[in-house]
């Protein structure tokens, strides 16, 4: 591997599908013991090194390297075409990189796994435009997202288990959609859909959340609430937020990575980054 491995204790479970449960998130339970994985090549939760993706000669990602630790929140900013979405695609298995290493929890090679497998490892993704299941009710959307057996035959069953009911209840409460539970998702407002999708993300109980422009189309109040929610989530799990809204990024108050032309341009606290000459030149504009 080209880059030196980050320092840190090796404290991960083997191919863990996400050790932190919703119960822990909601304070019902304390987080379970995190077991060290002797096979882990890196202590980072997400480890991208030298990732290159090109489409017909155009390099969407150019030797991108990024390291996200356990329960770390990171904001990613960058102008259009900087490669933010492509990076998410690589992490979630939608796009195969032409070169580079992508490891999750130090042991799982993301470049070899399919979308479903990666999702089951504990990586959740929220899309830029809210994508929920329009034909289903709000409740059913959450039900489908709940961390459960994903195999086809196991899901030929009717009704809901008490555990499912309890979780759906708690999640609807958290994303403030309790009153809309029986409505079709298609009928929700844009902001409500954003919240529903966040609820679905939580229902998956991922170890790493990839959130693409969560504040887009939200009111100021909703935006502020979202920031609070994300910070709360980030206490127990890693969150990567791609955002254009600088106020929102400031609210998050986390380390910022600036992408430009498929590579990392700068990294650090927002104030430091926004003072960087090159960043100002390519992104903040003059």
């Amino acid at each position: 591997m080209a880059a030196p491995l980050p320092e840190g204790p090796k404290t991960y479970e083997i191919k863990s599908p996400g050790v932190l449960s919703l119960e822990a998130e909601l304070g019902i339970l304390s987080p379970p013991e995190v077991v060290a994985d002797p096979m882990a090549l890196t202590s980072a939760l997400l480890y991208l090194d030298n990732i290159t993706v090109s489409f017909d000669g155009f390099r969407a990602l150019n030797a991108l390297s990024l390291v996200i630790g356990e329960a770390e929140m990171r904001a990613i900013i960058g102008p259009n075409g900087a490669g933010k979405t492509t990076m998410m695609d690589v992490i979630t298995g939608k796009t195969r990189p032409n070169a580079g290493t992508a490891l999750f929890a130090g042991v799982n090679d993301l470049t070899r796994l399919g979308e479903a497998e990666i999702a089951n490892l504990g990586i959740g993704r929220k899309f830029q435009t809210p994508t929920v299941f329009d034909m289903h009710t709000v409740e059913d959307n959450i039900l489908l997202a709940l961390r459960e057996d994903r195999r086809a035959f196991r899901n030929i069953r009717w009704g809901r288990t008490p555990v499912e009911r309890e979780r759906i209840e708690a999640l609807l409460e958290r994303v403030r959609l309790k009153d809309h539970r029986h409505r079709q998702a298609a009928e929700l407002s844009h902001g409500q859909k954003q919240w529903l999708e966040i609820g679905m993300l939580l229902a998956q109980e991922p170890r790493l959340l990839l959130v693409d422009e969560p504040a887009a189309g939200m009111t100021d109040q909703e935006t502020a609430d979202t920031a609070v929610l994300l910070r709360e989530i980030a206490k127990t799990r890693a969150v990567v937020v791609v955002e254009h809204d600088m106020t929102f990024v400031r609210d998050l108050d986390v380390k910022v990575t600036v992408l430009h032309e498929g590579s990392v341009l700068a990294e650090g606290p927002l104030d430091q980054v926004s003072a960087d000459e090159r960043v100002i030149e390519v992104y903040l504009g003059r």
Partner: peptide, 9 residues
Amino acid sequence: FALKGRAVE
């Protein structure tokens, strides 16, 4: 002769 790129994804 498939067209490649993000547009077709």
